[in-house]
Design a protein around this nucleic acid. Structure first.
Lengths: 206, 206
DNA sequence: CCGCGTTTCAAACAAACGTTTGAAGCTTAG
DNA sequence: CTAAGCTTCAAACGTTTGTTTGAAACGCGG
């Protein structure tokens, strides 16, 4: 296994694919556009990933492995504390996503790709995400259940679903709110996270 | 202008396109798949709509004209009442969408297509939607502003954005909540609308 | 410095894409 | 009944799609 060249080619493809998938969708972005943007040969995708579908999965895996790990880490911290609050659990879920979206090049773009995955009714993709990262949502659901014991199971699941909706929508920048001129991207996203936690906490408590 | 045949062909194309756009996206659904599903000739799309892009716009126009009209109608009713509530304004926005999604064939599918439009970063499509239906959101924003006078303009816009997010997500069935076995589609959606109003009202009031 | 496994490359593959064409099939008015 | 105007149709247009190929280039251990 060589080192730098292979790594670099793989990484460049993943980066370009992420960007183009966010912009044009999985079907809308062609491998020729991806390889051109990555400045690699067309055949490199099938050499390194086997197929376009595998490339798509790898784009998710690269980011979600770390994102899931950080979320569970912060959730464990919250659970260890003496008096966990709803806001603290929401923070544990939202802050890692915020940090990722503020990462050097690509992080913010990935949240748009993730939102695309929700829009796709593609059952293979949904199964892949559910199989590999479903346990994260399960753990958070349990934490919320502990904090909202007065809610029925049904009631709780409905509200969590809606909270995830607001979160997904906001993180993917679907909305109409634009960054203000005197504001950095970081400031904009931090304020968004603040409103997000406040809004969903109120909704969950109802 | 002929009557039945043309009308039927146009309508069949729109119906099939709506379904396939929801399932596979705008780029993912080909005109050959659409015309095959509609049982019409391939060339019929370009004859009746001019291009695939025009077909996409027409899919939106067919549903949104009526949806927007009903929303404004109900909002006007609420504004005429002696004491409008947050829940009543939310109802005015959500109930017409619920009714559409319960319509005979296609209504529920359209909400998924609409959510795709948010996922697409396509500026042409966003401009089309904003130009033709932006005034509806404006009127609702004004109604909310009147009911939440203690909020700053910024604060209000952030919360509205998040509310639209939860709404879009829920109506498009992005979530993980499945219809329960003993439950009709109508019951499921009505319950969803109930939770949606309750959740977003709490979030808006914060 | 040679040879072998890995990676890149240009080229080609069949299939599918949106769109166009011109003739055939209709329906209706005169 | 004929002529005119829509609508449908099969076929083909040139592109673009994902994937495959076999040879060239590369990097490194022996």
């Amino acid at each position: 296994m060589p080192h730098d060249t292979q790594f670099s080619t793989r990484q460049r493809i993943l980066g370009a694919a992420e960007e183009l998938f966010a912009e044009r969708g999985f079907a809308g972005a062609s491998l020729r556009q991806v390889t051109a943007a990555a400045k690699v040969n067309l055949a490199a995708v099938n050499y390194h990933f086997g197929s376009k579908d595998n490339l798509i999965e790898e784009v998710f895996r690269r980011r979600l492995d770390e994102l899931s790990h950080r979320r569970l880490e912060r959730l464990a911290e919250v659970n260890r504390s003496v008096a966990p609050t709803l806001e603290a659990v929401l923070d544990a879920f939202i802050m890692p996503a915020l940090e990722l979206s503020l990462d050097r090049e690509g992080g913010s773009v990935f949240m748009r790709v993730l939102a695309r995955a929700f829009a796709e009714h593609n059952s293979n993709l949904r199964k892949f995400l559910s199989d590999n990262y479903g346990h994260v949502l399960k753990e958070f659901a349990a934490a919320f259940a502990r904090l909202l014991p007065h809610l029925s199971k049904d009631e709780l699941y409905w509200r969590l679903d809606l909270a995830v909706g607001a979160l997904t929508y906001a993180m993917a920048d679907f909305g109409m709110i634009q960054r203000r001129s005197g504001e950095t991207e970081r400031q904009h996203r931090e304020q968004m996270a603040r409103h997000l936690v406040h809004f969903t906490a109120a909704g969950l408590r109802a």
